[in-house]
Design a binder for these strands. Structure first.
Length: 585
DNA sequence: CTGGGGACGGGGCCC
DNA sequence: TGGGCCCCGTCCCCA
């Protein structure tokens, strides 16, 4: 099927909508493994395929010259092709079956240069052919190239924009006629767009025409690559979208989190900016450069040395700062605390802590021990490590000659002297000096025997509401448990403030308290699961905790009764889940 | 399985 | 605002 430019109106999606990329739900424990060369190699391989004709599914022709290419690449780099292939409408039926596209209106040399740009991120053109390339870039909607050419030719976006409009009107007139409204929409926001684009692109003109010394393609930072490889978990917020406008990137929300992604293989980023329907009406509110600014300072991110010379959007701190200032002027950075990790979405508290956290994703360990070569992500850890070499053990035990590298080691050690074992297993009541040892104990199978030895009762008794003596005893125990929970301070204050539980109903029926309801739900589960041993254990645990609190063995902190209760509830719920699984078997 | 040491990451405080 | 320092919780490893 042959295709020439005018039929564009047949495939232009109207109205233009910003593509929303479906986000995968958040996942814990994501690890970003950067492959800095991936994008470069990918582009290189695509270019090889283009040269050999491999997998080429689109042939561009211009005045007899034929250029095999790939739809996906062309759709990525060219607004024209993206519309032509319908990818803006989700791409479901994109492509339209065009295999040959006749572009006689674009000079062969210019088309060749544009294809070369698309596959190498480098634009190589003779000065004499600049105008042809400009014309071709405008017709095909390769905005960054068009802007670069305009800059070289000394034309402004404003004046040339009119020319471009005229050219579009000339070549794509059916589009405008067929989609009058969309044409108006585009026209109405074009001036605004052009201003924005002009502001952000002064830097990249040079880079387009002066490609990086080392590589024709861009080198995204490792972090950016790692980010790209990871699923995003949240749709872009309006703030992020505004950020996107400021940074002049395309509409892929994922790219919001790619600060180092200065140059994409397709190089066609800026023209996408013109499509954004909200450009003329950026959302109100404070300037949204926070994330951008944050990411500026991410160590391991934005390796400007590598990004310099990339072909498109601002990448360096200075450049992005210029963008930000151009966007609003006189902006103040919002407080950086807390900050959200763009990789794992985790909220990082504390000024300056996000770069530290980001190194956990990038694997960057910039602090190396001069003695043994071991590397660390943090210099304070290196400093502690150096104590091993210097023999410094600044934390001596007052009771014995032992000295320790860490204060918390001393703390653990002191518990040995005191004999305190404040961490007791609620199931087997084995006590531990360290909480992590208790956790290890509970996560292991140390208590498996006890847990599986719980009495199993006839389920009909519970289902029928009939309770035998032992069951009634258990029920009473649970009620007593509830009362004790109420009075012992085991439950959080929010629970205790709920009211007296007088009148009809169970003692803990205090409406409107989540924690209490959670406890009640747990108790109900305990009942329904007939976990007599659990209720006993829970009661004993509460008694024990209550007594301990009175004794002041665990003054506040993470071992406070409320916290312990929460952990206990979590653990029991988890074990109930396990029991349910067991019983289903 | 437990005790102990060490590493690692996060948060708070301060400069 | 960034970084240093410290503390804490957690995990891993080894005896």
């Amino acid at each position: 099927m042959r295709h020439t430019l005018p039929p564009l109106q047949l495939t232009v999606p109207m109205p233009i909508k910003m593509v929303k990329v479906a986000m995968s739900p958040g996942e814990d424990g994501l690890i970003g493994i950067p492959f800095p060369e991936h994008s470069n190699e990918l582009l290189s391989h695509l270019n090889d395929q283009r040269r050999t004709g491999l997998l080429c599914d689109l042939t561009l022709t211009s005045r007899g010259a034929r250029y095999p290419t790939h739809r996906s690449v062309m759709a990525a780099v060219s607004l024209y092709f993206r519309r032509l292939f319908g990818t803006e409408e989700g791409g479901g039926e994109g492509g339209g079956g065009f295999s040959v596209c006749q572009l006689d209106c674009v000079a062969p040399d210019a088309l060749d240069a544009l294809l070369e740009f698309a596959y190498t991120a480098t634009l190589t053109i003779p000065s004499s052919g600049m105008r042809d390339v400009l014309r071709g870039a405008q017709l095909l909607g390769i905005q960054c190239v068009a802007d670069a050419c305009r800059d070289i030719l000394g034309e402004t976006a404003e004046t040339e924009g009119e020319t471009a409009e005229e050219q579009r009107a000339q070549h794509l007139a059916p589009v405008r006629r067929a989609g009058g409204e969309i044409g108006l929409e585009k026209g109405s926001r074009r001036k605004t767009d052009k201003k924005k684009v002009k502001k952000v692109e002064s830097h990249h003109v040079n880079s387009v025409l002066n490609p990086p010394h080392a590589s024709p393609a861009s080198h995204p930072s490792p972090a950016s690559d790692s980010l790209r490889s990871l699923p995003s978990t949240q749709p872009p917020s309006p703030e992020q979208e505004e950020l996107f406008l400021k940074s002049g990137q395309n509409g892929d929300p994922r790219l919001i989190r790619e600060p180092g992604r200065g140059a994409t293989p397709n190089g066609g980023l800026h023209h996408w900016l013109h499509e954004r329907p909200h450009v003329a009406h950026p959302p109100p509110g404070p300037p949204s450069i926070d994330k951008l600014s944050e990411e500026d300072e991410m160590e391991g991110f934005g390796d400007d040395g590598m990004l310099m010379g990339s072909t498109s959007i601002p990448t360096s701190v200075a450049e992005r700062g210029a963008v930000a200032s151009a966007g609003g002027g006189g902006r103040k950075r919002k407080s950086q605390t807390p900050q959200q990790c763009p990789v794992c979405q985790k909220i990082i508290h504390g000024a300056g802590k996000l770069p530290r956290h980001m190194r956990t994703h990038t694997g960057e360990k910039p602090f190396q021990c001069s003695a043994c070569g071991v590397r660390f992500t943090r210099n304070d850890k290196l400093k502690i490590h150096m104590r091993k070499h210097t023999g410094e053990r600044p934390y001596p035990c007052p009771h014995c000659p032992a000295r320790f590298l860490h204060s918390y080691d001393l703390k653990n050690h002191l518990s040995l002297h005191s004999g305190a074992r404040p961490f007791e297993c609620p199931l087997c009541h084995k006590a531990f000096a360290r909480e992590d040892h208790l956790q290890r104990h509970r996560k292991g199978h140390s208590c498996l025997e006890l847990r599986t030895r719980r009495p199993r009762h006839d389920p009909e008794l519970v289902e029928d509401g009939r309770v035998d003596g032992g069951r009634r005893e258990q029920s009473n125990l649970l009620e007593a448990l509830s009362l004790q929970a109420h009075s012992s301070g085991f439950l959080p204050p929010s629970v205790l403030e709920g009211g007296g539980g007088t009148g009809a109903g169970p003692p803990l029926m205090f409406p409107g308290d989540v924690e209490r309801e959670r406890s009640l739900a747990l108790l109900a589960q305990l009942r329904s699961h007939r976990l007599a041993d659990y209720s006993e254990l829970l009661l004993r645990e509460m008694e024990m905790r209550g007594g301990r609190k009175m004794e002041g063995e665990d003054p506040g902190g993470t071992h406070s009764p409320a916290v312990q209760h929460d952990r206990w509830v979590d653990d029991v719920e988890e074990e109930i889940g396990e029991d349910e699984a067991e019983e289903e078997e």
